[in-house]
Design a protein around this nucleic acid. Structure first.
Lengths: 134, 134
DNA sequence: CTAGACATTGACGTTAACGTTAAGGGTAGT
DNA sequence: ACTACCCTTAACGTTAACGTCAATGTCTAG
């Protein structure tokens, strides 16, 4: 059972906390292509998911150009062996990039923890001095 | 035992695969402040680590302004309780952001896997057709 | 001491990703 | 019919993060 829901541009803008300008810009760059009723844009669930993917990509530091390429690739359904294997290759490259970012995050979290421990120790010594003076 | 090594700007540029312009720009923005021998910049290990942190932050999609603030914060060693607790708060905010990004990565990896499976299946059916025609 | 390699400081140029304003079309309620 | 509100395109503006010269200084090997 498919929900055949539609959204206005401001619906999506509010939901994802971006401006309508941003959404129109993504369309301008070829990342979205909603239907039109006259001139008015009408987004369906597929469009919504696309926008979600775009914003997710942005949060991870990818450029719109990169995101566009991956969307194009993942949407494509080639029928020849070479093309299919090419897609698999690109997917593996992307996976490696993401795993690198994951490592970066873990490293950063580890560094943060060290700083945190330092500060907590400082707070403890501060509290001890406080107590010894009371 | 501390290594008291120093690096030229092009040493660092080569090692981290960025241009010297980039490194100078970071200094201009207050993210680095190496020593000088006359006018020539001389970087030590602490500077090197800083640059590494900057680039790591960039890869994760943070702006130089954000990176600057976190570096400033983590370098600071306040002595008052309120300040220390404030730092802990900011650290926790940063941690949440990073955990969000981690989720984004996992979601993306999961989506990628689905696409991959689809393609692999297509490849298998292709191979089967191939075999049945031989 | 001199060439060649690397360093410096401006300063203007470029690109991505929108922001902002202008000028107006479509429609739903009163 | 009028108002309010949302939509549209078009076009110029802005900011971050460097790139790209140009003109000049410095240092190291021969």
């Amino acid at each position: 059972m498919k929900k055949n829901v539609t959204y206005s541009i401001s619906d999506l803008a509010k939901h994802f906390d971006v401006t309508t300008r941003t959404i129109r810009f993504y369309e301008d760059q070829g990342l979205l292509s909603p239907e039109r009723k006259n001139t008015v844009r009408i987004y369906n669930d597929r469009d919504r998911v696309r926008l979600q993917l775009i914003l997710r990509g942005k949060r991870l530091g990818f450029s719109l150009a990169e995101i566009k390429e991956t969307l194009k690739l993942y949407d494509s359904t080639p029928d020849k062996k070479i093309q299919l294997e090419y897609v698999l290759n690109v997917i593996n490259t992307h996976r490696k990039e993401l795993l690198e970012k994951q490592k970066d995050i873990k490293r950063t979290l580890a560094d943060m923890k060290k700083v945190e421990q330092k500060i907590i120790k400082r707070l403890e010594t501060l509290n001890n001095k406080q107590r010894s003076h009371s």
